[in-house]
C-alpha cells in the first residue's frame, strides 16, 4: 500500500511548526500505524533527515503513551483503539493521511508529535489516591463489594491517561480523565473517607492547569480508546456539588497530613 503523509514537524516548544509531506510505499496491510511511522523514520534516517519524534512504548494499547491526531481524530478513525493498535488495513491504498500532535493549551508540544502531559499527573497528585501507607491491612473479604460495583469502578479505572479526551474536546476539557479517577475511587468503600475532599482538590487542580470546561459535546467519550462513559462526568459533578455543601468552610480543626 502507498500513502501520502502530512506530518506535523516542530523542532521544540518554541518553534512555530509546520506540516511536512512524505511519500511512503510498499506498506503491508498487516503493518500497524506506528510500524508505518517506524518505516518512515528509517527512510528519513537513510536520507540523512531527522526522524519524526513520537511517543510510544508498550505498543499494545495499555501504556497510554502514543498520541497522534490522525486525519483530525485522536487515535485515528477506529472506535476504542489507541494509535498503536491501528493497522494500515483500515486505510485505503493511496490515502493521504494527516498526522498531528494532541492540541491543547495544557499539553504543550515538546517536539514533532510529542506533547507534555504532566498536567494529568498533577491532577492525580492533587487527590487521585486513597491515603494508605504500606503495611498490614485488614483482610479484604471483611468488606464485601458487590461485583457490579467493582466492575463499574473498573470501567472507570481502566483509563490509560493518554489524553485523547482532551485532544478531542472543542474546549480542551479534562473532565473525562478527572472524573474517571474520581468515580473509580468514589464508587468503592475504601474511597469514601476522602471522597468529597478528593473531588474538590482534583477539580481545582484541573482548572489551574488550564483545561477548559465541559459543555457536554461528548467528543471525549467518542475518542476514548477505553470507551469510558461520560456518565462518570455526571457522577463527578454530583459529587462536586455535594462536596461544596458538605465540606466545612473552616478547616482549622482538620489534620492535613498524617
Amino acid at each position: 500500500m502507498n500513502f501520502t503523509l502530512k506530518v506535523w514537524r516542530q523542532d521544540d516548544a518554541k518553534d512555530g511548526g509546520h506540516l511536512e509531506k512524505y511519500q511512503i510505499e510498499d506498506i503491508e496491510p498487516t503493518c500497524s500505524f506506528l510500524e508505518m511511522m517506524d518505516i518512515l523514520n528509517e527512510q528519513l534516517t537513510e536520507q540523512n533527515h531527522e526522524p519524526v519524534a513520537f511517543d510510544s512504548d508498550c505498543r499494545e494499547g495499555i501504556c497510554g503513551m502514543c498520541s497522534m491526531v490522525i486525519n483530525g481524530q485522536p487515535h485515528g478513525p477506529n472506535d476504542g483503539t489507541t494509535t498503536c493498535q491501528l493497522y494500515m488495513r483500515h486505510f485505503n491504498d493511496g490515502d493521504q493521511i494527516t498526522i498531528e500532535p494532541w492540541r491543547s493549551v495544557a499539553f504543550p508540544v515538546v517536539r514533532d508529535l510529542v506533547v507534555d502531559r504532566s498536567a494529568f499527573d498533577r491532577i492525580t497528585q492533587a487527590g487521585g489516591y486513597i491515603n494508605v501507607h504500606s503495611g498490614p491491612k485488614p483482610d479484604p473479604n471483611s468488606v464485601p463489594i458487590e461485583p457490579d460495583i467493582a466492575e463499574e469502578a473498573l470501567d472507570a479505572a481502566c483509563c490509560i491517561g493518554c489524553g485523547a479526551c482532551v485532544a478531542a474536546c472543542p474546549n480542551g476539557a479534562a473532565m473525562l480523565y478527572t472524573s474517571a479517577k474520581v468515580a473509580h475511587l468514589g464508587l468503592l468503600p475504601q474511597g469514601q473517607p476522602e471522597r468529597f475532599e478528593r473531588v474538590q482538590n482534583m477539580v481545582h487542580q484541573m482548572e489551574d492547569e488550564g483545561f477548559g470546561s465541559c459543555r457536554n459535546y461528548a467528543e471525549c467519550e467518542a475518542a476514548c480508546p477505553k470507551e469510558i462513559s461520560i456518565k462518570f462526568i455526571g457522577k463527578m459533578n454530583r459529587d462536586y456539588l455535594r462536596s461544596t455543601l458538605l465540606l466545612p468552610v473552616d478547616r482549622r480543626g482538620r489534620m492535613d497530613s498524617q
Partner: peptide, 16 residues
C-alpha cells in the same frame, strides 16, 4: 490486602 486498601478493583464473586 495492601492493593485492595489502595482501591484496586479486583474481581468479586456474587457475595462480594
Amino acid at each position: 490486602d495492601q492493593a485492595v486498601a489502595q482501591g484496586v478493583p479486583f474481581a468479586r464473586e456474587y457475595g462480594g
